[in-house]
Design a protein around this nucleic acid. Structure first.
Lengths: 341, 341
DNA sequence: CGAAACACGGTAAACGTTTACAGCAATGCG
DNA sequence: CGCATTGCTGTAAACGTTTACCGTGTTTCG
């Protein structure tokens, strides 16, 4: 594991200057003879270009960071799975940051952009604070934000439309005759939490249903928290006939609790999840879920960033990905396939 | 987004030399007065250390790479989720490589270690070829391999024990009275595929059951491939009463096909998966699965690598993580909770 | 009071590249 | 044949740090 060969080693062995070595390695015009000698020497020595030195000089690291709360969350995972190949194809490596939904960690990531270890950043902030906005404005490298950001923030932005998404779900439940539709939400100070809460209220209004505080329970975006919240909700409201859950994990928690309580899904209570993750298809009964296009958002973000890395001065762009309702057994067709063993 | 301040800028503003600036920033002994001036200047300028220049000089990037076939696979994801925080706590960033199980990509990753963009690598190779071994021996940075590697390969190594794992599963099925136990495996030229195939045969022997080629079907480690393989198997063998699946995705495919074919799980056919992923708990019926300790393996690998980064000259170490059988509805307790809606 | 020890701080080299510039030989042209 | 042009190559500076080494001013002690 001794120090590998450098262009100096090669230059010495090939009997040329380091400039010539560099030129050959970069495909700049050189005499055939020189090229041959350099390539031979490089080959024999097993030379590999030092990426760090290159980056220092060229001010390009060919690395991009992706920061989100938790890789374990399938929604972020879906983004990651799209982002990775797009970046790879463009010759960028991917640096992964898990912020555990801690604001300080997100700020850290933004701050660390100043270290120049990446050429750009794709971030999915859970909350957007004033500090976020300040740091975004001052960022030393291009940033793409997945999630909503105030009008005029000078960054590329990719959004889901959870408002329409919730609307699709409630329309569906309403069409199935459900009238006591609960909401199991995540924290209201998160971007998705706030959006989904507001959308729920609005969609109810559009359907002519009253907004009843009793029907809303706040937990967090995890299965365990979903269980807790749904248990509370069932205790409080007896006649609930549908649950809109703010993500699939919460919805899985809901299924657990409903099953334990002997309420049939979907006959007694219909359940809708959100994000349409792998889990939705694997669960039983399979879960109707609102797809917010995680994969598409990831891809769009990666492409925005790459584009910006090429044409640095473009206007900030906003891409909105439309939602889609994926109907499965937990609301619709009463598990013809999923019938009892 | 102009060039940020460097230690030169600070030195000029504070009226000291760049050496002093560097010393202050690195906490080396300095006069209070100097320290104050430097810190003030750094603060005012919003200085952030350039990681690239630092790395060039110090020969440390504080980055570690993790390479596996596909982040989408929950087994790798479980590793990633453990690796990330361990590295982060030690001050390392994580560079993610998806190789899509393409050997050439894995070799690329090993080769790229010569670029010095990371201090070390954790790799989960699907197949280990001669080229792998050559490159491992010549690697320019420490590597930890998760998966089996020939005796004497000079790298730290973390292994699952799928042999014992399969054994646990077959013992369990045998104890339940199953005698026609099929194997749905992945490709035999992959490390896990080969190991699980051999272990199956061996475990049958230990139980005094005959090895019947008819009962073995090879597909790939995906749900869709699992469906295909199980469909073929059911067509070929009518009296099969249990399925040992080489991973959870295959097992989910098996559940799909069995349900569609009207075979009850577990009454008619018991199903065991492998890797004990999130999906196993979420599926219906919930899936008995052999945990190969993905999370533990990830953590062990990260710790081995960190240790090696600190004491470079240690002997290579081998860590074997014991398997554990997690019994759920697909073999055991006949879905009391999971009964029909 | 003078020499030795010490505490700091500055100068410059180094890490491994890329690249502007200049030098030089070979060629084209009048 | 001399001069301009062309085509390559080498020298050296630069990217932003860290750090060995040396010089200076202050303290300590005989």
């Amino acid at each position: 594991m001794g120090q590998g060969p450098t262009i100096n080693t090669i230059a010495a062995r090939a009997g040329v200057s380091i400039a010539s070595v560099s030129r050959v390695l970069n495909g700049l015009p050189t005499r055939q003879e020189t090229e041959r000698k350099v390539m031979a020497a490089a080959e024999e020595l097993g030379y590999v270009r030092n990426a760090v030195a290159r980056s220092l000089k060229s001010r390009r690291t060919h690395q991009v960071a992706f920061a989100m709360a938790d890789v374990g969350n399938p929604a972020y995972l879906a983004m990651l799975r799209e982002i990775q190949p797009v970046l790879k194809a463009a010759g960028y490596r991917l640096v992964l940051h898990s912020t555990d939904a801690v604001v300080a960690d997100e700020i850290d990531v933004l701050h660390s952009l100043g270290e120049h270890y990446v050429d750009g950043l794709i971030m999915v902030p859970l909350r957007v604070t004033g500090t976020h906005l300040e740091m975004l404005a001052a960022a030393r490298a291009p940033v793409v934000i997945i999630g909503s950001v105030p009008e005029g923030t000078p960054v590329d932005n990719v959004r889901a439309d959870s408002r329409t998404g919730v609307r699709l779900a409630l329309d569906h439940l309403h069409a199935l005759g459900r009238r006591r539709i609960g909401l199991v939400n995540g924290p209201l100070d998160t971007v998705p939490g706030a959006a989904r809460g507001a959308a729920y209220r609005e969609a109810l209004g559009a359907l002519g249903l009253p907004y009843d505080e009793e029907l809303v329970e706040i937990g967090d975006f995890y299965r365990e928290e979903g269980r807790r919240a749904v248990a509370t909700l069932l205790d409080r409201v007896a006649d609930i006939d549908a649950l809109m859950c703010a993500n699939d994990l919460i919805a899985l928690g809901a299924l657990d609790v409903l099953r334990a309580a002997g309420r049939r899904v979907p006959q007694d209570v219909a359940v809708v999840g959100m994000d349409d993750t792998d889990l939705a298809a694997a669960s039983w009964p399979s879960l109707t879920s609102v797809s917010l296009g995680s994969a598409e958002r990831g891809r769009a973000a990666a492409e925005l960033l790459l584009d910006r890395l090429r044409h640095g001065d473009r206007e900030p762009r906003l891409v909105t990905v439309p939602p889609r309702l994926v109907v499965r057994a937990s609301t619709g067709r009463t598990g013809a396939k999923g019938s009892a063993p």
